[in-house]
Write a protein that binds this DNA or RNA. Structure first.
Lengths: 143, 143
DNA sequence: ATATTTGCTTGCATTTTGCAAGTGCAATAT
DNA sequence: ATATTGCACTTGCAAAATGCAAGCAAATAT
């Protein structure tokens, strides 16, 4: 099913071939903010992704090793999605998008705190937040 | 013509609404590498963008203030495209994509030098290269 | 004067996205 | 035990974006 069609060997192009569509990075964003999400959680995001696209994007991200599915502790009917290390490593990218957006468009006030944090000590933030994501991931893998 | 439809106020989402398609960042990449490109230069890139999409993407990027057109010094038939400051500020993003791609996919050997440079002194690289882009831009605006 | 280059536009096929409804299984309620 | 709801998807079809090939006007080269 998942045969990768690369447009070229350029690293930018290859990366875009994986997550360079309208939705993938929003899924990653949700996971970075929430650590873990169910299928329904993604559907609830304010951008209102269509359910069929969500399904195909989740498959794509999983087959590219950016996210993993795991059993929900509460119920067999639920599925938890979370970032792999490869997914966690998209954090610096996300941070740069945030900073760019901050410079050139109006940011919702509830994000101001994070933006300030980012502008003042980006490196420290990246280090500690990616560690946080990693710890969360490991914890769930064990249970 | 350019009415912006934002899916939400999230900075990630708003940014993707501008350049989150299959091609825009490849156009920006070409401009970051080459400083300036003609329409034909973009068409020559190895990903082989279709001419009609190139036209609409260039318009989109221009109307969003990421690139500007300027007269080619040699000929009235030619047009030069180059990055604005807003476009130059996508450099950190590009660098992070590069680093992510380096970690998770095979990079063409001719890029190894840049990658090493990036890994060893990213901040210094960013500072000097964005200054370079800026200088180039200013030079052309005067002529 | 004629041919060629350059930056597009236009028409149409194909693919991707979007919307609404439906399916199947698990958990919960009766 | 049976019905109802919740959850993770599928399916069918309309709309939009992408891809391909050809065309076109203005500028330049011959």
């Amino acid at each position: 099913m998942g045969e990768m069609k690369k447009r070229s060997d350029c690293p930018i192009s290859s990366s875009l071939d994986i997550w360079g569509d309208k939705w993938s990075l929003l899924i990653v964003r949700d996971l970075i903010f929430s650590m873990q999400c169910t299928y329904g959680d993604f559907l609830k995001s304010e951008e209102k992704i269509a359910t069929n696209i969500l399904a195909t994007r989740l498959q794509m991200l999983e087959s590219n090793g950016i996210i993993t599915k795991l059993d929900h502790p509460d119920s067999k009917a639920k599925v938890l999605y979370q970032l792999t290390q490869k997914g966690i490593d998209l954090l610096p990218l996300m941070v740069e998008i945030h900073l760019w957006a901050d410079k050139y468009s109006t940011i919702p006030p509830e994000r101001n705190a994070i933006i300030e944090e980012l502008k003042n000590n980006k490196d420290e933030f990246l280090k500690s937040y990616s560690k946080l994501l990693k710890n969360h991931q490991l914890k769930d893998q064990i249970e």
